[in-house]
Design a protein around this nucleic acid. Structure first.
Length: 424
RNA sequence: GGAGAGGUGGCUGAGUGGUCGAAAGCGGCAUCCUGCUAAGAUGUUGAACCCUCAUAAGGGGUUCCGAGGGUUCGAAUCCCUCCCUCUCCGCCA
C-alpha cells in the first residue's frame, strides 16, 4: 500500500508508474483523490460533532454532582440528539473509508528509477551471467526421466497419497534436499542472518499483512475449520514476525533466514511448464528477509542478490540474473532481480530466486515501523529473496551433474553434507 | 476438550459508570549535581488520524485500556461474541 500522502502530492507520478507496470487505466487515482477529500471532510465533521457532544456530556456529570438536575436534563436532550447524528456520520465515514482503502489497495508500488520500462518478459534486462550453460549435449536427460527411472522421485505414489504436484523424494534425492536446506541455512548464518523456524500456517491478519489477501487468496490452501492458511512462502510468517511493531533504529538492519515448505494451489497451471519438479503444489524453500532503514534498502537489495548468487556459484550451477522491467515485476515491488539457473536437460532457464525491494509498501500495510534517532516514527523498508527454492535446484543438479552413464555426481560443497560424491 | 481466573501505557500494577489517556513504581530521555564505577535531584516520557501551519516550531480536535458489537447523555469500568494467557483436569509427540 502506497502512502496516501504521495498520491495526494504526486498523482501524475503515480499514474505514470501504473502505466509502466502495465495497468491500462489510471482513473482510480483521480477517484481516490476525490474520495480522500470527501473522507477528510467527513472526518472533520464527525470529530467536530463528537467534540461538542463530549464537552456537553462532561458538563452533565458536573451538574449532576451539584444537584442541578433540570439543567442537566436539558443537556441530556441535546446529547441524545447528537448521538443519532454522530451515528449517521460514522456510518458514512465507514463507507468512505472502505471505498477509499479499496482503491488504495489497487494502486501498485512505484518502480525505482533504475528499473527499465517495459511491458513483456523480453524487455527484462540481463544483468549478468555466470558459468557456461551446457548445450549440444543431447544425451542429457530431463530430471524427471532420470529420477523416476532410478526410483528417486515418485509422482505416482504422490498422486495416490495426496494429488498431483505432491511428489515423494526417495533415498538419495530426499537426502540431497536435506543437504541443500542445511547448506543454504549455514551459508545464510555465516552471512549474518538470524535463523527462524516459523509456523507453517498463518491467520488471516498475517495473510493480509503481506498482501496474499485480498487479491492472491486463490494461491493459498485454506484450513477452514481453524481459519488458517498454509503458507505459500516463508515471507509471510517471517515478515509478519514484526507486524505492528516499532523497532529501534539501533537494531537495524534486521536479517532473517527461514526454511519452510511452501504450498501453492497454482490453479490454472498445466503442460510442459509444470513437468517434473518445475512447478509443484508443495516445495521447499529457504527465504531471506531484510528489514532495513529506508535510506539503505537499495544497497540491501544488492547484498541480498549477491547472497543468493553466491549459493549458485558455490553449487557451480550456471545461472543468469535478470533485472525485471516495470511490466514484469509485479504489483508490490519497486525493483526486482530474478535468478535463473540453467537446466541442460530441458534446455531452458528456471527461476530459482527472486529478490525484491518493497520499500515501505508492505511495511505500511503491516504498520512495521522504527523510531529514528530524533525520536520520530518512520516506516521501515522490507526486502526478500529466495536463497533458494529447492525443486528447480534439484532439477538442475540432476541434469548438470549427470554423466552419460546416468550417474549423478554430488556438487563439491554438498559432499560433506551428503557424505558421498555421487547420488546412490 | 472440561472447570476456574485473568487480559490496562516499554515493564510491574492501581483504577468497578462522569473532571481517566489513565495513580504509583521501574525503565527510557534531558538537565543539574557528585570524582568514582554508579548514586541523587528536577523535569520529561504511548500510538493513529483530522484541522491549523511555511512539508518548521507550536496549537486545536477525535480515536485507542486484548478484538468486535451492545447498553448509556456519558464505559477501562455494565452486557454479548470472539481471541489470547494462567491454574487444575483430560488427551498427547
Amino acid at each position: 500500500m502506497l502512502d496516501i500522502q504521495t498520491i495526494r502530492e504526486q498523482p501524475d507520478r503515480v499514474k505514470q508508474a501504473m502505466l509502466h507496470k502495465g495497468e491500462k487505466e489510471t482513473s482510480i487515482v483521480d477517484e481516490l483523490l476525490v474520495l480522500d477529500k470527501q473522507w477528510r471532510e467527513a472526518v472533520a465533521a464527525t470529530d467536530r460533532l463528537r467534540s461538542e457532544s463530549n464537552q456537553k456530556a462532561k458538563e452533565i456529570g458536573t451538574l449532576m454532582s451539584q444537584g442541578k438536575k433540570a439543567e442537566a436534563d436539558e443537556l441530556i436532550k441535546f446529547t441524545g440528539e447528537s448521538k443519532e447524528k454522530i451515528k449517521d456520520l460514522e456510518e458514512q465515514l465507514q463507507m468512505l473509508t472502505a471505498k477509499r482503502d479499496l482503491l488504495l489497495y489497487r494502486i501498485p508500488n512505484l518502480p525505482d528509477d533504475s528499473v527499465p520500462v517495459g511491458h513483456s518478459p523480453e524487455e527484462n534486462l540481463i544483468h549478468s551471467t555466470w558459468g557456461e550453460p551446457i548445450s549440444n549435449q543431447e544425451w542429457r536427460r530431463p530430471h524427471w526421466e532420470l529420477a523416476e527411472e532410478k526410483g528417486w522421485l515418485d509422482f505416482k505414489r504422490g498422486v495416490k497419497v495426496t494429488g498431483a504436484g505432491f511428489p515423494f523424494y526417495v533415498g538419495p534425492l530426499a537426502r540431497l534436499q536435506r543437504a541443500l536446506i542445511q547448506f543454504f541455512l549455514d551459508e545464510a548464518n555465516d552471512a549474518g542472518y538470524t535463523e527462524l523456524q516459523t509456523p507453517f500456517f498463518v491467520n488471516e491478519d498475517s495473510a493480509r499483512g503481506t498482501g496474499q489477501i485480498p487479491d492472491k487468496e486463490d494461491m493459498m490452501y485454506v484450513v477452514p475449520r481453524d481459519e488458517f492458511f498454509a503458507i505459500p512462502t516463508a515471507e509471510v510468517p517471517v515478515t509478519n514476525f514484526h507486524r505492528d511493531e516499532i523497532l529501534k533504529e539501533t537494531d537495524l538492519p534486521v536479517k532473517y533466514v527461514a526454511y519452510t515448505p511452501c504450498w501453492r494451489r497454482e490453479a490454472g497451471s498445466y503442460g510442459k511448464e509444470v513437468r517434473g519438479l518445475n512447478r509443484l503444489h508443495q516445495f521447499d524453500k529457504v527465504e531471506l528477509v531484510h528489514i532495513v532503514h529506508p535510506s539503505t534498502s537499495y544497497d540491501a537489495l544488492e547484498s541480498l542478490r549477491s547472497d543468493a548468487e553466491q549459493l549458485l556459484r558455490k553449487l557451480e550451477l550456471p545461472y543468469r540474473t535478470l533485472l525485471m522491467c516495470t511490466g514484469d515485476m509485479g504489483f508490490t515491488q519497486t525493483k526486482k532481480y530474478d535468478l535463473e539457473v540453467w537446466s541442460p536437460g530441458q534446455k531452458r532457464w528456471l527461476e530459482v530466486s527472486s529478490c525484491s525491494n518493497f520499500e515501505s509498501f508492505q511495511a505500511r500495510r503491516m504498520q512495521l515501523r522504527f523510531k529514528n534517532i530524533e525520536g520520530q516514527i518512520e516506516m521501515l523498508h522490507t526486502l526478500n529473496g529466495s536463497g533458494l527454492a529447492l525443486p528447480r535446484i534439484v532439477a538442475s543438479i540432476l541434469e548438470t551433474y549427470q554423466e552419460p552413464s546416468g550417474k549423478v555426481l554430488v556438487p563439491t560443497v554438498l559432499q560433506p553434507y551428503m557424505r558421498a560424491k555421487e547420488l546412490s
